[in-house]
């Protein structure tokens, strides 16, 4: 007996919400980044669940693209964090407020 698609979607929704909560509440830039990865993963899970539900491979192909973009995004993001850390000696997003002025 296959697990119903709605179960996967609910799980995906929960994971996504936890990711959003992390982004909103944490102040460490690296942890915020990890929460974004979590959200992307939750979305991927929904995509794959729908791919099975509809019996089409397109959803899985899309997840493949999401992963490629996520990898690029992580590389650039971490490079920015390193650059910020070199200038400000911190990764706390509340203290990196240069653009506020």
């Amino acid at each position: 007996m296959a697990v119903a698609t709605s179960h996967y979607l609910i799980l995906s929704a929960i994971l996504f919400s936890i990711g959003v909560a992390g982004v909103l509440t944490r102040r460490n830039a690296i942890v915020i980044f990890m929460c974004i990865e979590l959200m992307l993963n939750a979305v991927n899970l929904a995509f794959v669940a729908f791919a099975r539900h509809l019996g089409q491979a397109d959803g899985q192909v899309f997840v493949f693209f999401v992963m490629a973009v996520a990898a690029a995004e992580v590389a650039v993001g971490l490079a920015i964090i390193i650059a910020v850390f070199r200038n400000r000696e911190t990764v706390d997003v509340a203290e990196v407020n240069l653009l506020k002025w």
Partner: peptide
């Protein structure tokens, strides 16, 4: 879910 919560 448990490890996602711990992540935060």
């Amino acid at each position: 879910v448990a490890s996602a919560v711990l992540l935060v």
